[in-house]
């Protein structure tokens, strides 16, 4: 029997499985976390006292929170442009697919495959101070020993560098999928018109990648604000809170000190910050081209 649905109904059916999953394992826990954030909850007392927004107002006077917010923003400002640019460049570089290029592509993608914890531990050792392998290599060039992750000015940029080493492969992959969708005829036509590589990029590739770039920027921003693993593994927020970031602060509060109320409040602040940023990115970038 053939029967057709109202498009609305079809839409709901298409999203139903996803919505069920998102609700059950995303939104319901989220609501629970919100309720927790309104209580003085410490995993002991099932009837934790309701404290209203006290956990939120406490954040305002929490110096570590402000440091974490500043550091996380600085980190995002370093990471997002870096990873996006590197990812796009890599994608453009490995465009024409030959056997050698496939090998290059695999090399650029390789750090993505390694577990984050392992990768972070690896960088910790490579950049150990003052006698780790990297310092040892630099000594060949008579560079004095660097403190790297122990230095309050180098630590955060180094983590950004590490993350972009780890994740640029994903950005590359996403851009590659985008490049693949650009019809070859467009380039052929441009080629006939005698447009050079740079102009082709400016006139065809970049505009057509707009939607993907929007995606990449939004995702990279979200991921940047959620930075946790390398901080957890390598610096634990130090030295001098130079790498104290929001999710690490949240983790420490929630799981080490068992201040679940504070941690939940923190996660909602984080949520609002990122949602605002993402919405802004959508607005700005959509304004440029018809999204």
């Amino acid at each position: 029997m053939r029967w057709s649905l109202r498009p609305e109904t079809a839409g709901y059916l298409f999203v139903l499985p996803a919505v069920l999953g998102l609700l059950a394992f995303g939104i319901i826990p989220l609501i629970y976390a919100f309720v927790v954030s309104l209580h003085n909850y410490d995993l002991v007392n099932p009837r934790a006292p309701y404290v209203g927004l006290a956990n939120y107002t406490a954040l305002a006077t929490d110096r570590v929170f402000w440091t974490a917010l500043r550091n996380t923003s600085a980190y995002a400002l370093m990471l997002v442009p870096l990873q996006t640019a590197v990812g796009l460049s890599l994608a453009l570089m490995v465009q024409p697919s030959t056997r050698w290029i496939a090998l290059l592509r695999a090399s650029y993608f390789m750090p993505v495959v390694v577990s984050y914890v392992v990768a972070a531990g690896l960088w910790e050792i490579l950049f150990a101070a003052p006698n780790g392998p990297m310092n040892s290599l630099l000594a060949l060039a008579h560079v004095p020993p660097q403190l790297f992750f122990q230095d309050r000015h180098q630590a955060l940029p180094l983590i950004a560098l590490m993350s972009s080493w780890k994740w640029s492969g994903i950005t590359m992959l996403i851009y590659l999928s985008g490049l693949h969708e650009i019809p070859a005829e467009l380039y052929e036509a441009a080629g006939v018109d005698g447009a050079g590589g740079l102009r082709q990029f400016g006139n065809i590739t970049w505009p057509l990648l707009h939607r993907i770039t929007l995606f990449v920027l939004v995702v990279n921003t979200i991921e940047a604000f959620k930075i946790f693993t390398p901080v957890y593994v390598i610096t634990r927020g130090g030295p001098l809170n130079a790498t104290m970031v929001l999710v690490f602060h949240l983790f420490r509060e929630g799981f080490r000190y068992v201040h679940l109320g504070d941690a939940s409040a923190l996660s909602f602040v984080l949520l609002v910050v990122i949602l605002t940023l993402a919405t802004l990115q959508f607005r700005v970038l959509r304004g440029e081209s018809q999204g």
């Binding site: 319901i28 989220l30 946790f228 949240l250 983790f251 984080l270 993402a278």
Partner: peptide, 27 residues
Amino acid sequence: IRFAGREALFFLVLTVMIIPFEALLVP
């Protein structure tokens, strides 16, 4: 497909993506 609540749903997707897993772990 255009359907009522589509934008809201997309917003929901973004929300789930943003919330750090550590916050959801216990629930």
